[in-house]
Design a binder for these strands. Structure first.
Lengths: 265, 265
DNA sequence: AACCGGGTTTCACATCATGGAACGCTCGCC
DNA sequence: GGCGAGCGTTCCATGATGTGAAACCCGGTT
């Protein structure tokens, strides 16, 4: 639950410890390719991980033959098999399939960007994002992360989680992203109390200048928060409060649809 | 390109060969958990893979500490890290982000199920699926596979691919799924010719009884097919031909939006 | 209290991954 | 057109490393 993943950002220089050395190396390779945006080359991997070229070569060969990597003329990419595997992750899968129809409804009603996110290692990870043509501005990506305290979904998740989860999130957050980002633990606690009162969280350009949103918590049958649902739009024309009821309604709908699934993460 | 993955269906009894033995075993474990629907237990893994318990234990430990597996009271599940990694697969990612807005448009216009799929190892793999509340019937899943010759998207992809890709797909197809499934290579070739003439493919309850669809090819800048886009609905009220123009329009839109991305697979 | 079926730990053994060295290749540069 | 910088690839003697039988712990069932 409180398992901090090694930061996937920046150079993955082998700081991951596995009891089985080979596996550690293999993941170092994957981590590097991931950090490089899904595409790299053998030499670059060797340089970045500090592993000798022949070793990387051997690992890459196995990864390719399984489908975790894909080789082209002069590049190596994450392979399709990883996508397929990733879609089988139960937590994500159940949530996504339950939430999607309601997210569609929200999109059709608002024509703004709709997000579904969960908490992982103190960060918000986006499970689904629905968006139209105009939304080049949103800095989010399905499968991407954001510091929890700086986002609407993050706040709505933390508000209904025990205090130590909040601590983890604060520590994992990193530097504020905008002038309005909540960077102090005290201010955050107060904000979370407000969220609990009102039932929704707002993001007033706290994660990205010019971007605002409303988020509502999604609870499971047992009454634990499992995800956050949000509508986001540009600060100018978009008034998040107007959609407060809509997100709440959608969130309730998702809860109703959720199978009996344990909290998980 | 023609790399047949070992069938992910059924018991994965270690028939995967890697030069580095440990990695082969590790993937055998993951494969089993995947085949079990994303959730299993240590004992079951050991039984299914034929690996001794201590070995599985060690592997699982490493997989957990990286985030590829997640442990709960009495189960092991595929972990969130796999989802994140899977979303970084470049081929999938570019396609998805380019296609999504157009898929939204299609959904809003039709309120039927919208699919985006690519060809992998002779199968159609679904990259995205948009669906409303009523569509319990569709047997597809994002990240899931279907035999190419039995689906609209599959036919539209095969129609613009060289003959050997068709051969691979036919061999990989398995038994017909419905009475109308195209199971002979000759009939398929003829169907593909029709597809090339008309520019779209239909699925008349060929993959699932009661389900029909229209599919259009998505080409990249270089003019190669990279994906298929489809609208599917129930055989009764849904007349696929009525949406022929709509899917085609959307597919063209996606092409225009696609970055300069090599064919890949 | 004996049993069973899960998960865990231990440890002597030899299998297996290791990585330095050396190779072929294709560029780009002088 | 020759030279070198970088890339991916192969080889193979060496010992570090993964191995798995055996034994153990624990909670539930008989």
């Amino acid at each position: 639950m409180t398992d901090q993943y090694p930061q996937a950002t920046g150079q993955t220089r082998f700081e991951y410890t596995a009891t089985t050395a080979v596996i550690g190396k293999m993941f170092a390779v994957l981590d590097h390719v991931a950090a490089a945006g899904g595409q790299s080359t053998l030499a670059r991997i060797a340089a970045a991980t500090g592993l000798p070229k022949p070793t990387v070569h051997r690992l890459v060969k196995d990864l390719k033959s399984w489908g975790a990597l894909e080789a082209g003329g002069d590049w190596l990419r994450l392979g399709p098999r990883l996508f397929e595997l990733g879609q089988l992750v139960p937590h994500t899968r159940n949530l996504r399939s339950a939430a999607l129809p309601f997210m569609q409804d929200l999109y059709e009603a608002t024509h703004e960007t709709i997000h579904l996110g969960v908490l992982t290692g103190g960060h918000v990870v986006y499970i689904e994002k629905i968006t139209g043509h105009h939304s080049g501005a949103t800095p989010t990506r399905v499968g991407g992360r954001m510091p929890a305290p700086y986002t609407g979904i993050g706040k709505v998740l933390l508000a209904y989680l025990p205090g130590d989860a909040v601590d983890v999130a604060v520590r994992a957050a990193g530097p504020p992203r905008t002038p309005t980002s909540i960077s102090s633990r005290d201010v955050l606690s107060q904000a979370l109390a407000t969220v609990r009162e009102r039932g929704v969280a707002f993001d007033q350009e706290e994660s990205q200048p010019g971007l605002v949103c409303v988020a509502a918590p999604v609870f499971d049958r047992a009454g634990a928060v499992v995800a956050g649902l949000s509508v986001a739009g540009p600060a100018g024309r978009f008034t998040p409060a107007r959609f407060e009821a809509a997100v709440l309604t959608a969130a309730h709908g998702v809860r109703r649809t959720l199978r009996a699934a344990p909290a998980g993460g």
